[in-house]
Amino acid sequence: MGGFLSELGKNLAKQWVSLLVVPGCLFIATVAFGLALGHRRWWEVSRATKWVTTIDTGPRGVGVLTLVLVVLLITAAAAGLLAQAIGTVVERLWLAQRWERWPRPIRAIAAAVTRVRAGRWTGHPDAAPRRPTWIGDRALVPTKRVHAAYRMDLPVVWPALWLHLPDNTRAEITSARLAYSTSAALAGWGVLYVAAAAVWWPALLVVIAVWITAWVRARQSIDTYARLIEAAVHLHSPDLARVLGFEQEGPLTRDTGARLTYLLSARNDHHTVRDAVLEVRPQGPTG
């Protein structure tokens, strides 16, 4: 047990340094450069480094420098936690779950964006966007496709299917979901760098680069996540049906998919199978 706790502590320390302290130190350094240089003389890096030559190398100076480093590490970690918190908000905004319940001004903007996105689609109404973001709609695709193929309410069946999945499959899905959260956290750093750009305009380039990178990575990771969920349903839902007592041979049928929904739905004592299937709400396993 002692060895396990020691190894766990090492892993947590590594994550703390890599996810919070190092990016936080870079952010604090950028803000410090910005405060020293300003907008007008943004290129004179030597002005920001002159203070290094004035550091007292005696015992007192070393003590002061140590204190400064400790404060820097604490501040960097705090900035990292703030970026993580902002990233959580960004993650929810990108998914746009239940955007109809957002505060009125934001809800009006989201509704307008959704209408514009829906207007670009000329196919069947069921294929039109339902959320104001591409990421949000991509997260809904598995639910819609699974329902169309198997008459299965994926949010209802997913918890049981998740418990039934092999460890390697769950690891792949978890990794893709974590990659999306990491992308949102990167966007959180982009929001923080706006503060640096306010005092030193070159930091705006960092904001743009970070946000583009975060958005591209988020799209890629949520697409991978959605594809893995669909694959897991196709590959493992027939076996889940057999485990739950259904006579199932070969691919899952629409009748069995509806029966799975009915069996696993908390509302099955008040609804028929048809009612339970037709009341699928537009939210996927990420909701």
Score class of each variant (00 low, 15 high):
217 R>Q: 15
248 Q>C: 14
31 V>C: 10
243 V>C: 09
107 R>Y: 09
149 A>N: 10
59 P>N: 05
145 R>P: 00
25 C>Q: 14
261 T>I: 03
231 A>I: 00
64 V>C: 03
91 E>H: 13
211 W>C: 02
193 Y>A: 03
19 L>H: 08
105 P>Y: 06
99 W>F: 14
118 A>F: 01
140 L>S: 02
87 G>C: 06
87 G>H: 04
62 V>K: 10
211 W>F: 05
68 V>L: 15
82 L>F: 08
277 V>A: 01
120 R>P: 00
218 A>T: 14
45 V>W: 12
86 I>F: 08
133 T>D: 01
46 S>Y: 07
34 G>F: 03
30 T>C: 13
209 A>W: 02
74 I>M: 13
52 V>R: 03
245 G>E: 06
161 L>H: 07
124 H>G: 00
167 D>L: 15
210 V>Q: 15
127 A>N: 04
254 R>G: 09
283 Q>R: 15
166 P>L: 09
199 V>N: 01
78 A>P: 00
231 A>T: 11
187 A>C: 09
137 D>V: 03
87 G>V: 05
178 L>E: 04
201 W>A: 11
91 E>L: 03
134 W>M: 12
35 L>P: 07
19 L>P: 00
233 V>K: 04
234 H>G: 05
227 R>A: 13
105 P>R: 02
34 G>S: 02
92 R>H: 10
26 L>N: 05
128 A>V: 01
95 L>E: 12
124 H>Q: 02
212 I>C: 04
173 I>Q: 07
207 V>H: 05
60 R>F: 11
250 G>W: 07
33 F>K: 10
42 W>I: 04
179 A>W: 07
131 R>D: 01
150 Y>S: 02
153 D>Q: 13
156 V>T: 15
51 W>Q: 08
142 P>A: 11
218 A>K: 11
96 A>T: 05
23 P>W: 14
61 G>S: 08
40 R>W: 14
107 R>T: 04
168 N>M: 06
169 T>S: 11
165 L>H: 06
50 K>M: 10
24 G>K: 02
208 I>A: 13
246 F>P: 05
259 R>V: 02
150 Y>P: 00
22 V>L: 15
147 H>S: 14
120 R>M: 02
114 T>D: 03
172 E>S: 15
14 K>I: 12
245 G>M: 09
14 K>C: 01
96 A>Y: 03
67 L>Q: 12
235 L>D: 15
7 E>Q: 10
36 A>T: 07
215 W>S: 09
249 E>T: 14
99 W>C: 07
240 L>Y: 12
234 H>Q: 13
52 V>Q: 11
191 V>E: 03
269 D>L: 14
80 G>R: 04
53 T>W: 13
199 V>K: 03
29 A>D: 08
265 S>T: 07
61 G>T: 09
170 R>T: 15
155 P>Q: 12
41 R>W: 12
154 L>W: 08
31 V>T: 04
259 R>D: 07
251 P>T: 11
145 R>F: 00
174 T>R: 14
139 A>G: 11
8 L>D: 01
112 A>F: 10
188 G>R: 02
284 G>M: 04
240 L>D: 07
20 L>N: 10
132 P>K: 08
254 R>A: 15
100 E>M: 07
